[in-house]
Amino acid sequence: MFDMQPCEKPDAPFVADAYAASAARTVTRMGRVTVTEGRIGDDWAALLIRVRDDRDEAAFAALFRHFAPRVKGFLMKSGASAALAEDCAQDVMAVLWNKAHLFDPARASVATWVFTIARNRRIDALRKARRPEPEDLPWGPEAEPDQQAALEMQQDTERLGEAIARLPEKQRVLIERAYFGDLSHTEIAAETGLPLGTIKSRIRLALERLRHKMG
């Protein structure tokens, strides 16, 4: 149905190149987040943090080039026309700019965060429905972000993407259909065999630290 492999990042070298200088500055702020054996995927978080902290339009442009077409593709596979998907993808990227202060790299990768914005936009635009959200926890980006946790979260998410790409096609297509909104809630079966345990443990630990601090 949809070929997920290989998961290309054609614009990544451009990002790495154009942002060498800014990345160096970001290192001071974010410590190890950007300096990981040239793993390009890690840079999205650094770019979004530049949008968050410095309102950096060039960093936003790089995020836009990578994520906007993916949001558009995701929405089209969810049943939106090209025109509606284009319009919603622009909205999603505007939300990314406006809500960048809510992004916490220790909790989610940029791809995950963009997905949640796109999903909510899809529910508004295509299903015209509401989706109650869990209670907010006062665990927004901390003044001193846990840099190791942030790095590991980005890496876990990359590994998850690789694991999905390696799944037998039938299973992979079912997961994709669930997320494209092609399966009803009674048709979704979640026995994916995906390595979700590490992400779960990481968030669980972060929550325990938070509860401890609040307690």
Binding site: D3, P69, R70, A111, T112, F115, A165
Partner: peptide, 16 residues
């Protein structure tokens, strides 16, 4: 974890 799956699906399912 399940939101991260959504991120991975969107990342790799094709850009338009």
């Amino acid at each position: 974890g399940y939101e991260a799956v959504g991120g991975a699906v969107m990342e790799c399912a094709g850009a338009v």
